[in-house]
Design a protein around this nucleic acid. Structure first.
Length: 484
RNA sequence: GGCGCUAUCGUCUAACGGUUUAGGACGGAGCCCUCUCAAGGCUCAAAUACGGGUUCGAUUCCCGUUAGCGCUACCA
């Protein structure tokens, strides 16, 4: 165990989209293995035929790749331990289940769902814990073989001791003890020939040399079943680490009812993968100091299971938004341009000169949380403002304003150098000569140029817009809003 | 119901028995900067669920209560 290469896995069921909780589990597995220079494996657990969703695997892989969580082995990347899709490993599970039967650790069961239902109801009525009554465990070998040979529908169940308890160590929870009598004679192979999770996970984790099982807390109570199987097979038990759950704002388990849970929803809303990864990494883990902004490389460097907490964490969208803004600020203007372009296009803004776009981005960068914001907030850089803020007009456009703006236009036109410094000089000088406050020029000018009363610094904005457009919009507004 | 897990500001969390008037961040309030909005800086409000132990000393260890969550399938 000491010098073994670390191998972790993310083993989702393809039942739809990738859940943010799933993404965090994948992330932690990824971070842990990469921190230890190990391998990270993607395994598809599609043993429930009734819940299978078409295209879910492709979607899962696509989303994982988008997030940058790269697996070393998986369905489309063989590492010698394949296949990595459980529905392609059916014979393996059957063989191991038969081994268990031969060793006397498992048995065939012919009970119908109806009978199972009935005994469950009876037990519940008698206030007993519902569990299988081990009826078929008492069947003779001859009878069992005969019925199997006759093609009678059956499952394979594992034998669980009736007395005693099992203690195991979890890296996050410490020692956990569960009595055997709490465990059912779990079905291992279903009547359709597919294994249940419990058999498949144990067999695959062993065969794929998984050293650390890092998964959600919902699996904690099934661990004894799994350990029992490891014992029956004579296999070494991997290290276990059960992660705290992700919660809704009301502290219930994170669910679709109370907001988005699919990673792709966040993606399409304009969240950066850097922000999402940073955010979910911190839901249950922290570096132990005050740093908050982390990129994936730093996470790999500093991640440890020892620093993962035990209690559930509320998925707090406000903080995600803040992180998104922080990561946007850290992006280069060039990266942001690529990010923002599709949104410009959907707004009908095409053929925008790249240099111009970069200039606008540098002004708007600190004012955006989402790329959608950018289009909304900087539309006037790309076309004439169509609506003008009514309150701003009444607040800032006074009787003399039109006259002043026309004067300003003259000054701007006569400028040799047109940049934010020369513009500012011109504006301040004019206000001085007019004996008015500079703001009496600044506010109406911003309104005339953008249609709004808020936005980036006026002089920078005027420089980016260019002299020609500025003068044109100012003259237009001077005419349009002229009170006289 | 049974079993298990968990419990620090509204939220994410720090503190690995004493350096703590319990620290940081998001969000909130206020101030500064300033042509507005952001960004940034500063300040404030805000927590150890409750009750017992152990200890010279408990947020930290133990027990109980309470609450939340998970599991209790031929679902994962």
């Amino acid at each position: 165990m000491i010098n073994k290469q670390v191998r972790t896995r993310f083993a989702p069921s393809p039942t739809g989209y990738l859940h943010v909780g799933g993404l965090r589990t994948a992330l932690y597995n990824y971070l842990f293995s990469k921190h230890k220079n190990g391998k990270f494996i993607l395994r598809i657990e599609d043993t429930d035929q009734t819940r299978k969703v078409e295209g879910a695997v492709e979607n899962l892989i696509e989303t994982l790749k988008w997030a940058g969580i790269d697996y070393d082995e998986g369905p489309d990347r063989d590492g010698g331990y394949g296949p990595y899709t459980q529905s392609q490993r059916l014979n393996i599970y059957k063989d191991y289940a038969k081994q268990l039967i031969e060793k006397g650790h498992a048995y065939y069961c012919f009970c119908t769902p109806e009978r199972l239902d009935e005994i469950r109801k009876k037990q519940l009525a008698a206030k007993l814990n519902p569990s299988y009554d081990k009826y078929c465990a008492r069947l003779s070998k001859e009878e069992t073989q005969k019925r199997v040979a006759n093609g009678e529908k059956h499952v394979i169940r594992m034998k669980v001791p009736t007395d005693g308890e099992l203690m195991f160590e979890d890296m996050i929870r410490g020692n956990v003890t569960i009595a055997y009598k709490m465990l059912d004679d779990q079905v291992l192979i279903k009547s359709d020939g597919f294994p249940t999770y419990h058999l498949a996970v144990v067999v695959d984790d062993h065969l794929m040399n998984i050293t650390h099982i890092i998964r959600g807390e919902e699996w904690l109570s099934s661990v004894p079943k799994h350990i029992l199987l490891y014992k029956y097979f004579g296999w070494e038990v991997p290290v276990m680490a059960h992660l705290p759950l992700l919660l809704n704002p009301d502290k219930s388990k994170l669910s679709k009812r109370q907001g988005d849970v699919a990673v792709e929803d966040y993606r399409s809303k304009g969240y950066l993968k850097e922000a999402i990864l940073n955010f979910i990494a911190f839901l249950g883990w922290n570096p132990g100091d005050d740093r908050e902004i982390f990129f994936i490389d730093q996470l790999i460097k500093e991640f440890s299971l020892e620093r993962v907490g035990k209690s559930g964490a509320v998925f707090n969208i406000e903080k995600l938004n803040w992180l998104n803004q922080q990561h946007i600020k850290l992006k280069t203007n060039e990266d942001l341009a690529i990010f923002v372009k599709p949104h410009l296009q959907t707004a009908g803004l095409i053929n925008i000169e790249n240099k111009y776009l970069l200039n606008v981005i540098s002004l708007m960068k600190e004012r955006m949380i989402f790329p959608q914001d950018f289009v909304e907030n900087s539309i006037y850089f790309f076309k004439e403002p169509e609506v003008f803020d009514e309150t701003a007009i009444s607040k800032h456009w006074e009787k003399e304003t039109s006259q002043y703006e026309n004067l300003l236009c003259e000054r701007l036109e006569s400028l040799n150098e047109y940049n934010k410094t020369s513009i500012e000089d011109a504006v301040r000088k004019l206000s001085e000569e007019l004996k008015i406050k500079t703001s009496k020029l600044i506010h109406p000018t911003r309104l005339a140029l953008s249609g709004r009363q808020t936005g980036p610094g006026l002089f920078e904005m005027m420089e980016v817009l260019g002299k020609e457009i500025v003068v044109k919009r100012l003259r237009f507004a001077a005419d349009k809003f002229n009170i006289e």
